[in-house]
Design a protein around this nucleic acid. Structure first.
Lengths: 227, 227
DNA sequence: CCATATTAATCATTCGATTAATTTAGTCAA
DNA sequence: TTGACTAAATTAATCGAATGATTAATATGG
């Protein structure tokens, strides 16, 4: 068991700072966010950032450790299911394809639920920022989240297509499949204007999922060999 | 004719500032970039930013006007070709599909050449930043670049699939097709690590294009109706 | 009682903007 | 061609505001 200690005074301020920092950093980025604004949002004295995290950079790093652990919690169930299914996969190519597609849609659900949750809006923006200028925090994200997600997806793509999962072709296909979905969240500014959508809600996500399913079906219904 | 005047002293500093700002803003974002660093990179006095552009914000806006005009120059030829082909499109569904795919690949070429050009690395990062926190500059980008590109692509998707080009289905499909490509540039941090690639070069882009072609072929080889 | 935690105040920097003085380049009269 | 006049452009210096970090004093709670 993990210790069910009541959180100490220090733990409370640490958590308050992390949550506030998540929001403020996500809203304005690392440079534009001021430690004073974060402390105010957390209802805490500004000097405590230095005391608990060593400084602005340390707080930023702490935020990503928090994000990573939260995402891992959410990913764990579906990741376990995928691995279990991969072990006991059927032999019939058609069945394998259908199973892989179902699991991809399961992963889709987990991630879109995660991204769509308004309380995690801060996450998304922070992660996207890191994509463009990888700092030290990016390594944490990649090693614990992205690389695992991609490995999982690549195995499913391999299962659905018959490709070798480590081949360049398979990896490119995997990224493309991910890109089809992520663009709706990454290029949110463009997609919301173009689709005339509000912020991503259940009905827009359902519409995306429907098309995603169809695209997967047509993509794997035939081989992936060169013409 | 446009005036072939030799650029005045002011024009030269304006241009030097724009180029330097493109680089510095792209490298560090609006807030982290200092006007002093930009002026130094341009080999120019810092006060001239205020004199020529009214301030940091004005310079930022100026950079995007510069980007938009450059991108429009590059897009013009292929956009013209697409529109011409759309007018004189064949009736045979198979021929229409092949033509649409060829034009999509042409657009792919123009954009990847643009993005891949090292001299335009600044563009890309700036545009991606705007996606996440749309400022006033985003409106300029969307109206002149993105909305036109999407409209063009949507017409091609409609032509290849038989969908109505203004339908939600067609627009989602269009964004998905775009996402398959853009992820390699947007999530560059992740893709380079995952693919074990260096910065996007001709051979990596060729590999992406090959898969893109195959995906398009399998996606449009059959209908897009619900199962 | 004492380690942990918090507070208010202050530090040195850096930022964007502005000012006043100076230089440059183009125009026109002689 | 020359030389004065002027508007445009550039420069160095400085302004006030805001930043992250740090300190010394104080408070809290086991």
């Amino acid at each position: 068991m993990t210790e069910p200690k009541p959180p100490s005074r220090g733990d409370q301020t640490r958590e308050a700072l992390l949550l506030a920092a998540l929001d403020v950093f996500g809203r304005s980025g690392f440079d534009a966010a001021s430690t004073r604004a974060i402390a105010r949002a957390a209802g805490v004295n500004q000097a405590l950032i230095g005391y608990h995290f060593g400084g602005k950079q340390g707080l930023y790093q702490g935020v990503f450790e928090h994000i990573v652990s939260q995402m891992q919690l959410r990913m764990a169930p579906v990741a376990g299911e995928v691995l279990r299914c991969l072990d006991t996969a059927p032999d019939n190519p058609a069945e394998r394809r259908d199973l892989a597609m179902r699991l991809m849609l399961d992963i889709f659900d987990v991630y879109t639920n995660m991204i769509g949750d308004p309380s995690s809006a801060g996450w998304v923006r922070l992660i996207l920022r890191e994509q463009q200028d990888p700092t030290q925090a990016f390594q944490l994200l990649y090693d614990n989240i992205f690389s695992r997600l991609l490995a999982l997806l690549a195995r499913l793509v391999a299962m659905a297509s018959g490709l070798e999962q480590t081949s360049e072709t398979c990896r490119i296909r995997t990224l493309m499949i991910l890109g089809q979905i992520l663009i709706f969240f990454i290029a949110r500014g463009t997609t919301t204007r173009y689709m005339d959508w509000g912020p991503p809600g259940p009905e827009t996500i359902a519409a995306i999922k429907r098309q995603f399913h169809l695209v997967l079906a047509s993509q794997f219904s035939q081989g992936v060999a060169a013409p």
